[in-house]
């Protein structure tokens, strides 16, 4: 017998990259079911295209451009990126636009930097923001939920659009057109695929917290900050929407639970994650209320992704036995 020798520890907890990535995918299943329920065929086509494209692009780039033998598509990160990208798109988006989005997400957002673990920005968001800027019309006409088709669907104003209008005109009565909070929680509104049902996203988030895939710091700090700040604006001027509806609208829940918590692009320490979450919350509200776009979540996350290395450099965990100076 030739014994194996290695330094301690000699046992491992059994956690793996796959477990985490597929764990997040499982957490997205309720939202996936909800999107299929509300958007039917459109959702299926968009999501399938997005996931398949992301996996194929990752495979092709690792294999042919980077020339790596070891393929990484099995680790589940490309599937996750595809799912998240799909969740951020309207259900009637043409396939060719989705393909471009997937190429930018995987190619520019992830593989240019060396693949999983090295990308500074959330790949799915890079893809989404690229599409939002390049194809603003297609990306901001949202089918009204409850339609099962892919083409020729009726589009309508989203809650976010109404909120923006109310602020612009200073007319609080526009807000009365908003769906009820309960409808927004369950998903009876227009919007991107994965955004519509805040409830399903919350269920997924709680699953991830229980499986210790993520910690509470980022989602809680984002939601709390947005609620408090939006509440403050609402108190000062009622033409700003009710904070609960702000939280339930648009991509906020998806962003707070699934996009901002992305391992690679979020800070490493609990303190840093709180700073990151609060900053995302503030930026989101500011962009939503004062920027030119109705939605600010993706921009806020991308901006704070850029600050993550800085936060990691300056925010250190509390060392054992550290004496406060």
């Amino acid at each position: 017998m030739k014994p194996v020798i290695s330094l301690s520890p000699h046992v491992h907890g059994g956690d793996s990259v796959q477990k985490n990535m597929y764990g997040v995918c499982i957490a997205l299943i309720p939202a996936l079911v909800a999107s299929l329920y509300f958007f039917g065929l459109g959702a299926a086509i968009v999501l399938a295209t997005s996931v398949a494209a992301c996996v194929c692009f990752e495979w092709a780039i690792t294999r042919f451009i980077l020339g790596r033998k070891q393929l990484t598509i099995c680790d589940g990160s490309a599937i996750l990126t595809g799912l998240l990208l799909g969740f951020n798109l309207p259900s009637n988006l043409p396939i060719w636009i989705i393909l471009i989005g997937a190429l930018v997400a995987i190619g520019v957002g992830k593989m240019t930097f060396g693949g999983l673990g090295t990308n500074p920005f959330n790949p799915a968001l890079v893809g989404r923001v690229f599409l939002l800027i390049s194809f603003p019309v297609q990306m901001t006409t949202w089918p009204v939920s409850g339609q099962m088709g892919y083409v020729d669907v009726e589009t309508g104003a989203t809650p976010l659009f109404l909120m923006k209008e109310a602020i612009k005109s200073g007319d609080a009565s526009i807000l009365s057109q908003l769906p009820s909070s309960l409808d927004m929680l369950i998903g009876q509104t227009g919007g991107s695929l994965g955004e519509v049902s805040a409830l399903c996203l919350l269920i997924g988030c709680i699953f991830m917290l229980c499986r210790r895939i993520i910690t509470w710091h980022i989602p809680v700090s984002i939601l709390a900050t947005v609620w408090l700040l939006a509440g403050l604006f609402h108190l000062i001027d009622p033409s700003y929407a009710d904070p609960t509806q702000v939280i339930l609208s648009g991509g906020l829940m998806l962003g707070a639970c699934f996009m901002a918590t992305d391992y690679v692009t979020s800070p490493m320490t609990a303190k840093g994650q709180l700073i990151y979450g609060v900053a995302i919350g503030v930026l989101t509200v500011l962009i939503r209320d004062f920027g030119s776009y109705p939605e600010g979540m993706s921009f806020a996350i991308l901006i704070m992704n850029g600050f993550t290395p800085l936060i990691n450099t300056y925010v250190k965990p509390k060392r054992f036995g550290e004496v406060k100076k």
């Binding site: 030739k2 014994p3 194996v4 020798i5 290695s6 330094l7």
Partner: peptide, 22 residues
């Protein structure tokens, strides 16, 4: 002859900490 098999970070310094090594 190798009398043991080293498993760990591929670094001589790491293996050196295991005594005579492989």
């Amino acid at each position: 002859p190798r009398i043991a098999e080293f498993d760990g970070a591929q670094s001589c310094k790491v293996q050196q900490m295991l005594g005579s090594g492989e």
